[in-house]
Nucleic acid binder design. Structure first.
Lengths: 348, 348
DNA sequence: GCTGGCACTCAGCGGTTCGGAGTGCCAGCA
DNA sequence: TGCTGGCACTCCGAACCGCTGAGTGCCAGC
């Protein structure tokens, strides 16, 4: 139906204008800026219908219209295409990320880059441990009953944990329990996915020499507990200063809860858990179940497919900003950066 | 002189009242809340002198007085004593920090604790590498010309770097260059302060077998470059949400530059470089040479004396807040937490 | 040298006015 | 049937006004 069609054009125009001007948009301004081929009066009728249906709303009588969360949702799903990045932006991505050797370095640069590109808060999750494989395990003795275990994954992530261990008894003379433990652990775990680690522990306990059982048990327990649990995932946050753009206009309450939530990480991590590579996920305003993110939108995507399985990401990255956000541009930036990061990590 | 004495009492009272109420304080209110034994009129005369001397100022005619940076400075230096923490606070510190095994864990908890105690932004520096000693070096091969070097210090800090190395030539058959390199590096560096590392490299290069020279050179270069330089120090920041306390009242410009600076880290790190254990350092408003910290104060102190030398800290920690800050309380909290962290690190 | 009294200043607050942007509705036209 | 111009209406926001109250500086007297 032709009417239907035009109404959606009107909705799209409203979203675009409101995002770029931050002022409620009226029928006259719309007619002037967009070639809709009809008069303001007609647009007003369409607006009345859109408001009826809940896509837009008026801050007060005799003001222009503002998109609702539902309006943004429709815009993102049906009215916009992810717009390709400019050449300059593509080049910026390469320039920014090339030359990073270290995983830490890659992630830190990524988060800065993304914050800069989108002028919002950027977040990136460390590659999930549970989907990584062990590359090496190192054991260093700190004290007689205290070991430092360092885990290095195939993604280049390095994690350390201190483990309290029982004292070694019955060690054969001249043996070096720590060195033996190291050999044992590496033999058992190197190359294995961390998700499978728990199942290997039982085997290992059976086959380990008696005098090492205590050590193996303590270390394995810590590894399984603290490294495989999703709660142990870490997040890097950058560009929080961008929250203050536009004064108190965006984020009507205050940005305090948002800052707290970003520091707490857990809310964002939960979101990141659902994310797949290639499929950009947008979560708008009230759709975020957590209160502190009401009023904010999150655009996220997975990066790096874990060994070719297309539906599992190594981790997620994304952008947090006001609902009044340039969705097509942000989605493009997020997707492009994720793709590039995925490549980088695949190389190393 | 008795007048002099009373004027300072007035200044102290002004600072205390202003900090607790956030309103410019007038002569009448002062006379009412503090037992100064003189009438408001007399206080007014004292205030006029204090204003003349630059310790206080009026936001506008016919408003109360507000301390200037100079006023706060005098207050901190001469009019206040660090006030002892309450029992509850002491207990909170212990409860919060006990049970942390890991260095990362200790620092993360500390920063949260300090932010909570002072209701401001807390920062803590990782133990400076240059003053730490090497506990262990681990080398893992990532690719034929790419090694991952993991450094573990006596403070429990773990740092990793990827090193591009030249291909090994002339290796004796059956030898394992990486293992040999590991042995060599550990023999040379373990127990040595990182600050002395540079001097050891030359020796090592001379004595190393010919086929390992290339590896040793590349790895040593990276170690010296990236680990000893002060720029490589890292900072943990927490409680940024506290910046929004008091709305836009504190931080008159906006808090954007402050957030940026905290993320950038370098400004804060420079401050932390000057810090000694035990001696709480307060930097007030305009005293901070960096623009973004004008309007903010930093209270910092060193933690952990590096092996008994009283004037060198392992690192610094501190609090960033508005100039309108409870200095005695903050100084007490900062000092107490630093002391506790120092103890914790000394144990491990 | 302190004090009470007094005239003065000025931010903040509530009330009022006014212009402009935007709306909804309606009658007329294709 | 659907679009359009016209019109009356609403209401926010800026500007203006006067008032009040807190606070000051100054001065004469104790």
């Amino acid at each position: 139906m032709a009417h239907e069609e035009r109404r959606l054009q009107v909705l799209r125009a409203i979203v675009q204008d409101y995002v770029s001007t931050n002022d409620p948009v009226g029928s006259k301004a719309l007619a002037a800026r967009h070639d809709l081929g009809v008069s303001p009066a007609t647009i007003r009728n369409d607006m009345a219908v859109l408001e009826e249906e809940g896509y837009i709303t008026q801050p007060h009588t005799s003001a222009g219209r503002v998109p609702t969360d539902k309006g943004y949702r429709f815009f993102v799903d049906r009215l916009s295409a992810i717009k390709p990045l400019s050449v300059a932006e593509r080049r910026a991505i390469e320039r920014f990320l090339d030359g990073a050797l270290d995983l830490d370095d890659v992630l830190a640069r990524t988060v800065r880059l993304l914050a800069q590109l989108t002028r919002n808060v950027a977040v990136i999750q460390y590659p999930t441990l549970s989907r990584s494989a062990v590359r090496h395990l190192e054991v260093v003795q700190l004290a007689t009953t205290r070991l430092l275990v360092v885990l290095i994954t195939d993604t280049g992530r390095v994690e350390q944990r201190v483990v309290e261990v029982p004292p070694v008894v019955d060690a054969p003379a001249g043996s070096d329990p720590v060195a033996e433990l190291r050999t044992l652990l590496n033999a058992a775990f190197v190359g294995a996915k961390l998700a499978d680690a728990a199942t290997k522990v039982a085997d290992l306990l059976d086959t380990a020499p008696a005098h090492l059982r205590g050590l193996v048990a303590a270390v394995s327990a810590t590894l399984v507990e603290t490294l495989v649990e999703p709660g142990e995932d870490r997040l890097l946050v950058g560009g929080t200063a961008n929250l203050t753009r536009g004064g108190a206009l965006d984020f009507p309450g205050t940005l305090r809860p948002l800052l707290e939530a970003l520091e707490e990480q857990v809310v964002v991590l939960r979101l990141m858990g659902e994310v797949a590579p290639g499929a950009v996920l947008v979560s708008i305003g009230e759709e975020n179940e957590h209160q502190s993110f009401t009023g904010a939108s999150v655009v996220s995507v997975g990066y790096g497919s874990a060994g070719g399985t297309a539906d599992l990401a190594l981790g997620g990255l994304g952008v947090v900003g006001p609902t009044r956000m340039d969705y097509p541009g942000t989605m493009a930036a997020v997707r492009a950066v994720a793709r590039y990061v995925g490549q980088l990590l695949a190389e190393s």
